[in-house]
């Protein structure tokens, strides 16, 4: 392996810092969007299931099928497959903005399943108790299901955000920018291992930060 010459210090500001910023941008936008969408879909899945509070076969089957279908795509393939649509919507298929749309599509089903799992763990009898004193479906979702499953939701979402970070770095391979892209273009492809492993270390630091914040929140809420 070549650890001889590195341009790490030349690139520090122009490439590395900018990449950190881009990654954080993507991470934030994608996480917020897909958690919001995932939340809506997960609540709908739980409610419209046959033993849910609002059984609706068609809605349940559609969301379930969409989730399974999208989840079965590897992220990279999905991004490529979505390129025409991304061009239509964003106007370009490279860069941070262009990465947000396909990655949100790719990660929303994961968020959906993780949120659904947390919501389904809420004790059925607690929900029944809420029904028995006349709480509306909306009140049960907000005041019982989300409230009761919050610690679990937080720990699942910690895992999810780390997943999103992974997805943004993979998207770097096809022009998304950010840390993944820079590690590949300026590190791997130019045989600059020092630069590459520095970026790997930065990603590791990000993962650790997310995990630590997630753990603290979980402990606080539990």
């Amino acid at each position: 392996m070549n650890f001889g010459t590195t341009r790490l210090f030349d690139y520090l500001e122009s490439i590395v810092y900018r990449s950190v910023f881009e990654t954080l941008q993507m991470l934030f936008a994608i996480s917020v969007l897909s958690i919001l969408l995932g939340l809506i879909l997960a609540v709908l899945l739980v409610l419209t299931d046959k033993d849910g509070l609002w059984p609706q076969k068609t809605i349940f089957i559609s969301i379930n099928a969409f989730t399974n279908l999208v989840r079965s795509f590897p992220n990279l393939i999905l991004i490529v497959a979505l390129i025409p649509l991304t061009r239509q919507l964003v106007g370009t298929s490279v860069g941070v903005a262009a990465a947000i749309f396909p990655l949100t599509v790719a990660t929303t089903p994961v968020a959906t399943r993780l949120i659904e799992g947390a919501l389904r763990e809420v004790d059925k009898q607690v929900i029944e108790a809420a029904q028995s004193f006349g709480a509306s479906t909306m009140q049960i979702v907000v005041k019982v299901m989300l409230r009761e499953s919050l610690p679990r939701l937080v720990s699942n979402m910690t895992l999810f955000i780390i997943n999103v970070l992974g997805a943004t770095t993979i998207a770097g391979a096809i022009g998304a920018g950010g840390l993944g892209g820079s590690a590949l273009t300026f590190g791997y492809q130019r045989f600059d291992n020092i630069l590459m492993y520095t970026i790997v270390a930065l990603i590791l630091v990000l993962v650790l930060c997310i995990q630590v914040v997630g753990n603290i929140l979980y402990k606080k809420l539990k």
Partner: peptide, 8 residues
């Protein structure tokens, strides 16, 4: 039987 309280 299981009290059905919200623990949080």
């Amino acid at each position: 039987q299981s009290f059905s309280l919200i623990d949080r």
